[in-house]
Simulated scan of single mutants.
Amino acid sequence: MSDLTKAKTPATVEGVITKASPYEIEETLERLEDTIRDHGLRQFTHINHSWEAQQVGLKMQEAHVIIFGDPKAGTSLMVASPLIALELPLKVLVWQSDHNHVWVSYPSVTYLATRYGVPQELITNIAGIDKLVDGVVHA
């Protein structure tokens, strides 16, 4: 049995999808950033929470948030449902749990659509995040 199949799935949180990555954290991050770029999306920033914690003398597991999107697609969502701006651009958390298991977590499109009343015809503007993350965590 591989380490990946032995990895205990983290506790679930409503509206968040978490997938195991078979890659180490740096490779997972590199694959995510490459995939974002290859899909013609804009990476707005990379927040390294673990590094920031270290800067103030604290220690935590590896945790990185990549914020990315397409301003054209996001704008139409925010025009239709202004409060979704709290969730956009999209965010993906790449993090490491016990025993060095790497996970990729991101908001559920269905959850966002329901929570913010996104019109059905605009859901496709953010629905690609599922396939994007699948491409990162699968060979």
Results as ranks from 00 to 15, higher is better:
Asn48His: 08
Trp103His: 07
Val94Leu: 08
Trp103Leu: 00
Pro107Asn: 12
Lys72Leu: 15
Ala113Tyr: 01
Val94Ile: 13
Lys72Val: 14
Ala20Ile: 01
Asn125Cys: 00
Gln96Met: 12
Glu30Gln: 07
Leu90Asn: 12
Leu77Ile: 11
Ala20Met: 01
Gln43Thr: 13
Pro119Leu: 08
Gly57His: 06
Ser105Ile: 05
Val102Thr: 08
Val92Asp: 02
Val79Asn: 02
Ser76Ala: 12
Arg31Pro: 08
Gly74Ile: 12
Tyr23Glu: 08
Pro71Thr: 13
Val109Ala: 05
Ala63Lys: 12
Glu62Gly: 10
Ser81Pro: 00
Val92Phe: 06
Lys59Val: 11
Ser76Gly: 03
Asp98Ser: 11
His101Glu: 06
Val118Gln: 01
Arg31Thr: 11
Thr35Lys: 12
Val16Gly: 04
Phe44Trp: 11
Leu122Val: 04
Ile66Ala: 08
Ile25Leu: 09
Trp103Lys: 03
Ser108Gln: 08
Thr18Gly: 00
Val92Ile: 14
Ile67Glu: 11
Ala63Gln: 11
His101Ala: 13
Ser105His: 10
Lys91Ser: 07
Asn100Gly: 10
Gln96Cys: 01
Leu122Gln: 13
Gly69Tyr: 05
Pro22Leu: 05
Glu121Ser: 14
Ile67Pro: 01
Ile17Cys: 01
Thr110Tyr: 09
Glu26Pro: 06
Thr124Met: 10
Met60Gly: 12
Arg37Asp: 11
Asn100Met: 13
Thr18Asp: 02
Ser50Arg: 07
Ala113Gly: 07
Ile84Gly: 04
Pro119Cys: 10
Ile25Arg: 07
Gln61Phe: 09
Ile84Lys: 07
Ile47Tyr: 11
Lys72Trp: 10
Ser97Glu: 14
Trp103Phe: 15
Val94Phe: 09
Ile123Gly: 02
Ala53Lys: 10
Leu32Pro: 04
Leu90Ser: 14
His64Ser: 13
Ser97Tyr: 11
Val16Ala: 09
Pro89Met: 03
Gln96Ala: 07
Ala80Val: 03
Pro71Cys: 07
His64Trp: 06
Ala63Phe: 07
Ser108Ile: 08
His39Cys: 07
Lys72Arg: 11
Met60His: 02
Lys72Ala: 15
Ile36Gln: 02
Thr18Ser: 02
Ser108Lys: 09
Ile25Gly: 00
Arg115Ser: 12
Gln96Phe: 01
Asn48Gln: 12
Thr75Arg: 04
Trp51Gln: 13
Thr75Met: 08
Phe44Tyr: 15
Gln55Gly: 09
Glu33Ile: 04
Trp103Cys: 06
Gln120Cys: 00
Pro22Gly: 12
Leu90Gly: 09
Ile47His: 11
Val56Ser: 09
Asn100Pro: 06
Arg31Trp: 07
Glu52Ser: 09
His39Lys: 15
Ile123Gln: 15
Gly15Asn: 00
Pro22Thr: 08
Thr124Ile: 04
Leu29His: 05
Ala85Thr: 03
Ile25Thr: 13
Ser76Thr: 15
Asp98Phe: 01
Gln61Pro: 13
Pro82Ile: 14
Asp38Met: 07
Tyr111Leu: 01
Ser50Gln: 10
Lys59Phe: 03
Leu77Thr: 05
Ser81Asn: 05
Gly74His: 10
Thr110Ser: 14
